[in-house]
């Protein structure tokens, strides 16, 4: 389970970083979102992954660390608010600057098609 979990987190982070470094606002927003997903998964595992243990503390059974669950909830809520904000901001940028390039440079055609 650990290997699968680590791989998923790693791939998500890598995709997030790649997209964040793109030159247009939409991939950047998606990249930041992926990055926050990866971070949430990572936080969730920070107390160690435990299978077959209860989530509610009961002295007769081993229980999972409850703190990461509380922290990841906080992180999800904050991440959600930030994503909503950055989506609106990206739309505002498109409107104000007339371009969806992060540098605000007006290009007549997408860079990929220019050649």
């Amino acid at each position: 389970m650990e290997a699968l979990y680590a791989t998923v987190t790693g791939v998500l982070t890598a995709c997030g970083i790649y997209l964040t470094l793109r030159g247009r606002t939409f991939p950047v927003v998606v990249g930041l979102t992926l990055l926050s997903y990866a971070v949430n998964l990572f936080l969730f595992s920070m107390g160690g992954l435990a299978s077959k243990s209860t989530t509610i503390v009961d002295s007769s059974f081993p229980y999972a660390d409850p703190l990461p669950q509380a922290l990841v909830l906080t992180a999800i809520v904050i991440g959600f608010a930030m994503t909503a904000f950055v989506v609106i901001l990206a739309m505002r940028t498109r409107g104000d600057l007339g371009s969806d390039s992060v540098d605000g440079q007006r290009t007549d055609e997408p860079r990929e098609e220019r050649k």
Binding site: S36, A38, F42, L43, M46
Partner: peptide, 11 residues
């Protein structure tokens, strides 16, 4: 995001 990763490792 980096802050949260650091927190996770420290915890």
């Amino acid at each position: 995001s980096l802050f949260l990763i650091a927190l996770g490792v420290l915890y």
